[in-house]
Design a protein around this nucleic acid. Structure first.
Length: 550
RNA sequence: GGCUCCAUCGUCUAAUGGUUAGGACAUCGCCCUCUCAAGGCGGUAAUAGGGGUUCGAAUCCCCUUGGAGUCACCA
C-alpha cells in the first residue's frame, strides 16, 4: 500500500511535519542534571489532594535541580470537562504555594516557548505526528463502530483472551486503500490507531525512578491515538507533548503503570527517546477496616479546598505531604527548626511504593507544631486571612483591635516550649471565645471543690486587691494571698500533705477566678487573659459571675 | 478473570543477609505544674501464613492469603 497517499488522504490540511515542530520547539538549553517535570491535570473538577502531592513532588524535583516545572492542561475529553476547571486547579496550586515556571502560571497568564499548553489547542501538532506514523505504515484509520467493538470484546471475554483491538480482531488493519478512500468519501467517522508491532510472547522492562525495574508483557493492542474528532487520546498526547516540551521525568500516579508499555512502544515507533518515569503511589483512605484510594466523590478531604476551608496552615499541609513523600523530612525538620520546607532535598528513591493512608491526626500534629513555631503576629495575619474568607464575624472581632488579638495569640507563646493547641484556624473561634463578649456565651463550668459561698468570697477579695499592672510572679503571689485569707493552702504540696487542714489550695483559687472570667476550668495563662481583657472587663465578668452564683 | 504492583507496631515508615527490629503520630502511665496546652521520662504495640536457600532471613526464591491498580474514541 502507498502509505504516503493514505496519509495525504487522511490529513490533507496538515502541512507541517514532525521535523518542522522539532525546529519550532528546540531542545532546552539547561545545565547538566536539570530536570524538566510537569503536572498535567485534566480540568474535571477540584484539585485533588493526590494532585497536590504529585505537583509538589514534581515542583521539588524541578526546582531542586534548577530545572523547569510546567503546568499543562489535558483537556482532550470534552465530556468530562467542568466549568472553571482550569481556574480551580490553578487556585488550588496557588493557595498551596506551588510555583509554576511554564504553561499556566496564573489565571490569565500562560508563559513559555513550548506552548500551547492546552492540549486541545495543539490538535494540529498531534495530527502531524499521526500523519507521520500513517505515512510510515505505523498507524491506520479504523472505521469500526461501537457495536462492532462491543462484539469483539464479547467474543474475547467468552474465549478468555486479551481484550482489545489486536491480532485477528484488528480488521481495519487490512483495509485496502480503495476501501479507505471510499469510506472517507462517504464521510464515515473513524479513529486513528497505532499499528502495534508487539509480540504477546515478549516482555519489556523499564526502570521506574521510584519503584525500580518493572517488567511487563509487550503491548499488542492497536490503541487509538486520535479520536474521531481529531483530538488525541491521553497516550498519544503524553508522548508528543512530553517529547516536544522536553520533559525529563514524567511524574504521575501509579494508575499509569499498566499503560507504560503502550507509551514506550509509541516512543519506539516514533524513534524518540522516552523520558524517565516515576510512578507515585496513590493516597489512600481508611474505609470500613480496609484501604481504598481517596475518592473525589466520597471524601471531603480529597479536595484541597477542604484544607483551606478548615484553616489548616499551608506550610503544615505541605510539610505533611513532604513527610509522606520522604521519611527523612522528619529528621530534616528536627535538625532545622526554622528552615523553610523548600530547603529540604526530596529524593525520588526514598519514596514509598505502596499507597499510604492519609492521616488527618498526624496532619493535625504537624500543623500544631507549625503554628506553634510562628510569632503571635504571624498567627494573627494567618488567622485573619482565613477568617476574612470563611468566618466574617471572627474577622471583624479579630481586626477590631489588632494589639488585643496579637496579645491573645501570644498567650503562653514562649520560644522554648510554645503552646500547641491550635492546628487549624477554624479552632480559633472556640479556643478564644471567652476573649470576646460577642462570643462569650455566659455558661459556666462546674467547680467541684469549692462551694458557692466560698467562690463568692474568693472573688470579692481578689477583686479588691487585683493589680492589672503586676507582673506574673507578683500576680501569682496575690493569688496565694487570697488563698490564705480564705483558709486555703498557698502551696499545692502543703495541701496535699495535709488536706484536712485546708478548704482547698491556691489552684482552686485560680480555678474560681478562671471560671468567673472565662466560664471555663481550663484555659491558657490566666494572668495573660486578665491583663489582656483589662481591669474593667475582668471586673465586669467577675461581678456577672457573682450574680450567677446567687 | 488476565496483567502489574504491594505487604514491618493502630497509622506513616526505618533497618540494602548478622540490630535487644529503630523513629514519628496515636494510645497508656509517671514527673513537672495555678487549670489546660506543652515539656521530660517510661510503657503497650509489628516483620500476613507456609515452605525452601543459608552458619544466619524482615531482607533472597517458591506457594498461599490479603490489598491496590489496570484492561475505553476517560484521563
Amino acid at each position: 500500500m502507498d502509505y504516503n497517499k493514505l496519509a495525504e488522504l487522511m490529513f490533507p490540511t496538515i502541512t507541517k511535519t514532525v521535523e518542522d515542530y522539532e525546529r519550532i520547539y528546540p531542545k532546552r538549553n539547561l545545565k547538566e542534571g536539570a530536570q524538566v517535570t510537569r503536572f498535567a491535570p485534566s480540568p474535571t473538577g477540584f484539585l485533588h489532594i493526590g494532585g497536590l502531592f504529585a505537583s509538589l513532588i514534581s515542583e521539588r524535583i524541578a526546582h531542586q535541580t534548577d530545572g523547569v516545572f510546567i503546568l499543562r492542561i489535558e483537556d482532550t475529553d470534552k465530556k468530562r470537562e467542568v466549568e472553571n476547571g482550569v481556574e480551580r486547579i490553578l487556585e488550588g496550586l496557588k493557595n498551596f504555594e506551588i510555583k509554576i515556571d511554564e504553561g499556566f502560571t496564573d489565571f490569565d497568564t500562560c508563559v513559555g516557548e513550548y506552548g500551547p499548553y492546552k492540549q486541545r489547542e495543539r490538535a494540529e501538532i498531534y495530527q502531524a505526528f499521526a500523519k507521520k506514523m500513517v505515512s510510515e505504515g505505523l498507524a491506520y484509520p479504523c472505521f469500526c463502530t461501537e457495536e462492532e467493538l462491543t462484539e469483539i470484546r464479547n467474543i474475547q471475554e467468552e474465549k478468555k483472551i486479551l481484550p482489545g483491538y489486536h491480532g485477528e480482531f484488528a480488521k481495519c488493519r487490512n483495509l485496502s486503500l480503495e476501501q479507505i478512500e471510499e469510506n472517507i468519501k462517504k464521510g464515515l467517522p473513524y479513529v486513528v490507531r497505532m499499528k502495534s508491532p508487539g509480540n504477546p510472547e515478549k516482555r519489556i522492562s523499564f526502570k521506574d525512578a521510584i519503584r525500580g525495574n518493572i517488567e511487563m508483557p509487550e503491548n499488542i493492542v492497536d490503541v487509538v491515538i486520535l479520536k474521531s474528532d481529531g483530538i488525541p487520546t491521553y497516550h498519544f498526547a503524553h508522548v508528543v507533548d512530553d517529547y516536544l516540551m522536553g520533559t525529563t521525568v514524567v511524574i504521575r500516579g501509579d494508575e499509569w503503570i499498566s499503560s507504560a508499555p503502550i507509551h514506550l512502544q509509541m516512543f519506539y515507533l516514533l524513534k524518540l527517546k522516552a523520558p524517565k518515569y516515576a510512578h507515585i503511589a496513590p493516597i489512600m483512605k481508611e474505609d470500613e477496616g480496609g484501604k481504598r484510594k481517596i475518592s473525589k466523590r466520597k471524601d471531603p478531604e480529597a479536595a484541597v479546598t477542604y484544607y483551606s476551608e478548615e484553616g489548616y496552615p499551608v506550610e503544615g499541609v505541605i510539610e505533611y505531604l513532604l513527610n509522606l513523600a520522604n521519611y527523612t523530612f522528619e529528621d530534616f525538620r528536627r535538625n532545622n527548626k526554622t528552615a523553610h520546607w523548600s530547603e529540604f532535598k526530596l529524593e525520588m528513591n526514598k519514596m514509598s511504593n505502596s499507597g499510604g493512608l492519609f492521616d488527618l491526626v498526624k496532619l493535625n500534629d504537624v500543623c500544631k507544631n507549625k503554628i506553634a513555631s510562628y510569632t503571635a503576629e504571624q498567627v494573627y495575619d494567618l488567622a485573619i486571612a482565613w477568617a476574612k474568607e470563611y468566618d466574617s464575624e471572627l474577622y471583624s472581632l479579630l481586626t477590631r483591635d489588632k494589639d488585643f488579638s496579637v496579645a491573645m495569640f501570644n498567650f503562653d507563646r514562649n520560644p522554648d516550649k510554645p503552646r500547641k493547641d491550635i492546628g487549624k484556624f477554624n479552632e480559633v473561634r472556640n479556643s478564644f471565645s471567652f476573649m470576646f463578649d460577642e462570643l462569650f456565651d455566659g455558661k459556666y463550668e462546674e467547680i467541684p471543690n469549692v462551694d458557692k459561698a466560698k467562690q463568692k468570697e474568693i472573688i470579692e477579695i481578689y477583686k479588691e486587691i487585683y493589680d492589672e499592672n503586676a507582673d506574673k510572679d507578683t500576680w501569682f503571689a496575690t493569688l496565694k494571698e487570697v488563698a490564705v485569707k480564705v483558709g486555703f493552702a498557698a502551696e499545692v504540696k502543703e495541701y496535699k500533705a495535709n488536706p484536712d487542714a485546708f478548704g482547698g489550695h491556691v489552684g482552686d483559687v485560680s480555678t474560681v477566678i478562671r471560671v468567673a472570667v472565662t466560664g471555663r476550668t481550663r484555659t491558657p495563662d490566666l494572668w495573660g487573659i486578665l491583663k489582656t481583657l483589662g481591669k474593667n472587663k475582668s471586673s465586669d465578668r467577675m461581678e456577672k459571675y457573682i450574680k450567677e452564683l446567687n
